[in-house]
Design a protein around this nucleic acid. Sequence first.
DNA 1: CCATATCGGGG
DNA 2: GTGTACGATATGG
Length: 810
Amino acid sequence: MKVQFYPTDVDTIEYQGEQAIRIFGRTIDNKRICILDQTFKPYFWAIPKHAHKITQVKWDISDMNGVKEAQTVKKKILRQEIEAIKVTALDSKDVPTLRSEVKRHGSIKEVRESDVPFYRRYLIDKGIHTLNLCEVEGEELELNLDVELVMQAKTIKEVDDKPLDKPRTLSIDIETYNPQKIPREDKDPIVMIAFAGDDGFKKVITWKDFPKKPDYVEVLNSEEQMLERFKQVIQEYAPDYLVTYFGDGFDFPYISKRAKLHKVSLDINWDYTPLKVNVRHDIPTAKTKGLVHIDIFKFISRTMAGGLDTERYDLNSVAQELLGEGKTGAKVEELANVWDNQPERLKEFAEYNLQDTEITLKIFQKVLPGLNEFVRLVGQPIYEVCRMSYGQIVEWYLMRKAFLKDELAPDRPKSAEITGRLDQKFEGAFVFEPVPGIYENIAVFDFKSLYPTIIATHKLDSSTLSEKGVGTPAPETEISGKKVKFYFDEKKEAFIPEEIKELIEVKGRVSDQLKKDPENATLKGRRYALKVLANSVYGYLSFSGSKWYCIEAGASTAAYARQYIKNAMKEAEEQKFKVIYGDTDSLLIVLENKTKEDAIKFQKSINKNLPGLMELELEGIFPRGIFVGIKSGEKGAKKKYALLKDNGKIKITGFETIRGDWSILAKETQNELLNIILKENDKEKAIKYVKEIIQEVKTGKMPLEKMIISRQLRKDLSDYEAVGPHVAIAKKMQEKGIPVGPGTIIQFVVNEGNGIIRERAKLPEESTKYDVDYYLKNQVLPAVDPIMSVLGYTKKDLIEGNSQSTLGDY
DNA sequence: CCATATCGGGG
DNA sequence: GTGTACGATATGG
């Protein structure tokens, strides 16, 4: 029989005594399907030291244990033809031992592609992209799986590149008992779980009854029963995708732990095995089989981050930006108290819980076209693509391209190799040191895809890297302090530069299509995915873990970039523009008595002389901007400025009070100050505002809650060697019998008195008087001083309340 | 300066 | 899973 289906997840299982490929998906008539493919065999490549001995080596390998077959095949390494031995193994489990044995053979130089996970190899070789329509031919099988159809594949192929467009999706979210804010897995139960489905399905399950229950609420008798029901709801809904916001890091580890305590088996996988939370180093991931767990936070905070303005990636901020709506209603800090003492208010929390799943679902649907494009480009399962770092995205994209071009990929470097690479540092981007100040009418220019266009235009990678004097020299640069100059032979065929060139060209075509259809989400996602991929290749070339590592190309790319940006600056100055800043690929000039047309003329004059795909763009004209100094001196800090946009929003770069370990006081003050300066352009108001704040701090009138600094315990108290303020407090809490442990957030206020900080740090409720000096010196001044010194005020001016003595400096 | 610790997301 | 991988920044010594 023949069936058309959309594959959603692929892995390997043991079947009939050997490793088989297992594909889960959804058929075109909407059934869940599982396909087993035993026809595909694992293989890797062995490269002989001497080409003339290849036949003998091939026979030696054929005789090794676990070898199904060894053949010589013409392939390419760095685009040069070679003869390689394809070693086909009987079973993928045998590959690691077989690989070592082949490596030990005296006439073998190296092995390649021996570390490609079996199912990834399968997808690449079969030309199958998950989510794209495929056709399988084979027999129906009887297996105990939670799907409507099981098949054993004879043949399988991709038939269309239109992806599964309406996956059945269920979003989930838990609420936990939280007397100490961050809940403790072993002590604090889950009190509610919400679900939202793409067909409008909504449900909240809990285990405490309360009045005025909405219809979607179902009350169970205990946490244990709620967990059983949780499982059931998922099985009944039978989604393709199970979507969470930070489910890898919170919901699933928590659910897993609570289920274990109650001895509930979370067998929601389509093969009836339980959900598994893998912890590698510090980072947990929750893997399901069949249905795919998509932690949308992971994808948004990593891969989409470059396309978003938000500085924070909490659900509310991301919803604000992507949906234009945020969270409303209950305050989650009150949940523990309401659960214990005010069950009549639990309705608010059921609504809150449901809202989180609905927002998560909407965010997922909003970013899905983009995510789909990454999956199509990378060609690996969506579960993995949405968790990939940039390095992996590039690497698996290149792996597919390498296969199509007969290029043999190197194995990943071993740890000794990685350590060696990490020690090699090269000179990075050029950053112009700005003169601190406030500027008006700032024209911002950008080299469009600077690094990718340099790599493609000058053909920089290991396939063109040549010895001294052969080919074209890249600009001189430094690696680990040594001056070096590399040569790249542009006449040679280049692997990575040609792939980049193609990416840039495809992106250009997508941009053209977008001009005709500007709101097309698929096209927007495609353009973004292409951009991210192209921009990541530079990092990939010099990333210590990469297969196609080439520090010479990385260092030379940066060297070319410095040359281009410096030349553009020089040219701007020659055309009598005032350059105020430049960083990597951008150039900021003030228009002064010139016009936008002059700026465009400058841009054209640069573009006339740029080779290949390179291009300078005018990003826009910003009405006002501030550049701050390093200390209160004259030198400008690099990468630390704020620009006022046309739409009145402020684009902040490099100011660091966003982190939670600053007090609210520092954050609010800095924000308000930037607003006064950039929007209102009122220096008098700025100094007045800062002085008022400082005065309020000095006189002790600032509310204590604005002084709270939060820090989280990350390990058991006994494991701390260095005792920071929050550790000291936690120890005291423990002595009093208050439970503290990993995850507990310690809030403290630094109080007046003698001794070092940790002796004066106290819990907010035990604090009497905050330490004026500490807050001025460590919170308020670091936040405002760099900005105020631009206006000509020294720290002294701010603290002593003198008049603006050094205004002349400005 | 280097080594170690913390944050982020979640409640 | 044909494994062994966060990335950036602050603080302590």
